[in-house]
Nucleic acid binder design. Structure first.
Length: 155
DNA sequence: GCCAACGTTGGC
DNA sequence: GCCAACGTTGGC
């Protein structure tokens, strides 16, 4: 069963253009340190799933592009590295706490699709991203939400 | 930079 | 298990 997702990233840290320019246009989505998001990465995000690449903590925030999962969940190596800012002593190689997936660039929006543009769309009335206080960094996207977003003229 | 909302930690 | 304190997220 193929799923759709929305992954948040702060573009000052890693943007859709960074992904476009990356080696093989692929990156390991490291640094997720939230259990709910971890569960998705470990259990539910599969190779072949497509994701919306969302730019957070910028003005305006919004959807910046699309990527595809090329490798399903495996332990996040940055959690094992004491020198890394995402190091977590709780995570051990024999019993990893944190997981990541690999994603590859598919396309960037011609123009960013900001939250204000998404909010009025009827198909997105229930979308997790648009709920007040929602800050989950790895979110499932329903087929109807996906269809409504990927057919917008901003692509 | 502000601050509301949320998640985690830790004393009890 | 409760819950206050604290740290983080993320829109604005």
């Amino acid at each position: 069963m193929r799923h759709h997702w929305l992954f948040k990233s702060e573009p000052t840290v890693f943007s859709i253009e960074d992904l476009r320019r990356a080696a093989r246009q692929t990156t390991a989505w490291d640094g997720v340190r939230n259990y709910q998001a971890r569960n998705f990465l470990r259990d539910d995000v599969h190779a072949g799933d497509h994701i919306l690449f969302y730019h957070s903590n910028v003005v305006p925030a919004g959807i910046a592009g699309e990527a595809v999962v090329t490798r399903a969940g495996y332990p996040d190596p940055t959690a094992f590295d004491p020198a890394h800012r995402h190091f977590d002593p709780k995570s051990r190689r024999d019993r990893p706490t944190w997981y990541l997936v690999d994603v590859q660039f598919v396309r960037a929006c011609r123009t960013l699709i900001p939250l204000d543009r998404l909010r009025p769309l009827p198909a997105l009335r229930q979308m997790l991203l648009l709920r007040r206080g929602s800050r989950l960094s790895i979110q499932p996207v329903t087929p109807a939400e996906w269809a409504a977003i990927v057919t917008l003229p901003e692509w």
